[in-house]
Computed example of a mutant assay.
Amino acid sequence: MASNAREAMERLASESFSLVILDINLPDQSGFEVFTEMQAHKNYKSTPVIFLTAQSEISSKIAAFSMGAEDYIVKPFNALELKARVEAKLRRADSLARSNVSLCKGQLQLDASTQRAYSLEGAEPRAIHLTPREFNLLFFLAKNEEHVLTRAQLLDAVWGGSGEVFDRAVDTHISAIRRKLGSLSGYIQSVPGAGYRFSCLKHSQSGSKAA
């Protein structure tokens, strides 16, 4: 256990952790800033992070989930509930690591073992820099290609059905993924009144007509 941000970053640099529980109100730095530093670190960009904090404002929760946090628990908390949530996040991370290691859909390649995404449009693969949450969401959509997935299904699969997450968190992450996909953004289709579908078919047909 680290008492401040500096100590936390020192331990992260010298030790290995499967999951991190992080407070927002640290004495020397915001927990949000520590999370940002973790995502920039190659060894921890895919590590699940649970915020455990006294801040109950909706804006803080939305900020945490938008950044890619796995969960957000408000103090005071039940120790058994925290234990259950931690175990659930670890099981999900392990399941993803053991699932299909690589997916290649159209001109998009996803590597689950490293949580890296690549565009195969050019002569050389182009890295698409996604947060862990964005990668997991895109991977789940691509794995269920051509199936319409509701926001509730996406929340359950990627966020673990946490009661603190809102439907709009899915929309926010989808928008961010589309921006990063660039010309491949058409792979993610909105289905009015239902949710989202991953499909390479329409995108490929459009590309053929333009050629």
Rank of each mutant, 00 (worst) to 15 (best):
L120R: 13
N4H: 06
A40Q: 14
A117T: 00
L52Y: 03
G68I: 06
V148R: 02
T150H: 10
M9D: 05
E33Y: 03
L110W: 01
A13C: 08
Y196N: 04
G106R: 06
L12D: 09
F65Y: 10
A13Q: 14
S99E: 02
V170I: 15
E146C: 00
S66R: 07
A123E: 11
V165R: 10
Y187Q: 02
R126C: 10
T36M: 02
D28L: 10
F32P: 03
R85I: 13
Q29H: 06
E145Q: 10
T47Q: 01
F51A: 07
R151E: 07
D156N: 13
E81G: 10
Q153D: 12
N25S: 13
E10F: 05
L201C: 13
G163F: 12
S30K: 15
K45A: 11
P76Q: 04
E15C: 07
T47V: 11
A194V: 09
N43Y: 03
L184I: 07
A97L: 14
P125C: 06
S59T: 04
L80I: 13
T131P: 02
R178C: 00
I62V: 15
L154A: 01
F32G: 02
Q153Y: 03
L108A: 11
S102C: 06
A117G: 00
C104W: 04
Q205H: 14
R126Q: 13
A157Y: 00
N43G: 07
A157R: 03
